[in-house]
Simulated scan of single mutants.
Amino acid sequence: MAADDDDYVYDEASGEWVPASQLAGAAGGSGGDAVVVRDAVGNVLADGDQVTLIKDLAVKGAGQTLKRGTLIKSIRLTGDAQEIDCKYEGIKGLVLRAEFVKKR
């Protein structure tokens, strides 16, 4: 018990040091803004980040394929841990899965 009381973790979302046991309970999904989006290699993504594709992706409805290595600028998080919203020339409403991108 004493070990849990002594372990504190810095919570980037709130900017405060919180007990590790409290942070582990919050990761269960009760917080709406506490969704952490990670790319294919585990980097945490944030609004405005630039990402590159790690796989060729066929875009449904656009008749276009985005090639591996394509740079996507200024992403937006959607609130889902696996989806990011982004803009790319010629494609409106592009939503990518985080598992197919790598932070730049």
Rank of each mutant, 00 (worst) to 15 (best):
D47C: 03
L66G: 05
G28A: 15
I54R: 00
Y10G: 01
K60G: 04
D5G: 04
E12H: 11
K103C: 00
S74Y: 01
I72L: 08
E89H: 05
Q50S: 15
K92V: 10
D39W: 01
S74H: 01
G28Q: 15
G31A: 11
A27H: 12
A62T: 10
L23I: 08
E89W: 02
A46T: 10
A13N: 11
K67Y: 10
F100L: 04
D33I: 06
A34S: 09
Q82K: 15
L77G: 08
Q50V: 12
E89Y: 03
D33R: 08
W17N: 06
K55G: 00
I75F: 03
A58M: 05
D4F: 14
M1R: 11
K55W: 02
W17C: 02
V95C: 04
L57D: 03
P19R: 15
E99H: 09
A20R: 09
K60R: 04
D5Q: 11
N43D: 15
Y88A: 09
A2Y: 07
A98K: 07
G79F: 15
A27K: 14
I91N: 07
G90W: 12
T70S: 04
V18Y: 01
D33C: 03
V18I: 14
D85S: 13
L57K: 13
E99Y: 12
A98P: 03
A81L: 05
P19V: 08
K67G: 01
S74Q: 01
A24L: 14
D4H: 10
S21N: 04
A2H: 10
L77F: 07
G90R: 11
V35D: 06
Y88K: 13
V35Y: 05
G48K: 09
Y10Q: 00
V59H: 06
V59G: 04
E99P: 00
S74R: 00
P19A: 13
I72A: 03
E12Y: 11
L45V: 07
V18E: 05
P19Q: 10
I72D: 04
V95E: 08
A46D: 07
V35P: 06
A98T: 15
K87E: 02
G79P: 12
G48V: 11
R76E: 08
G31M: 08
R97K: 14
V36S: 06
R68H: 05
K67Q: 13
T78P: 02
M1V: 09
Q82F: 11
A46Q: 14
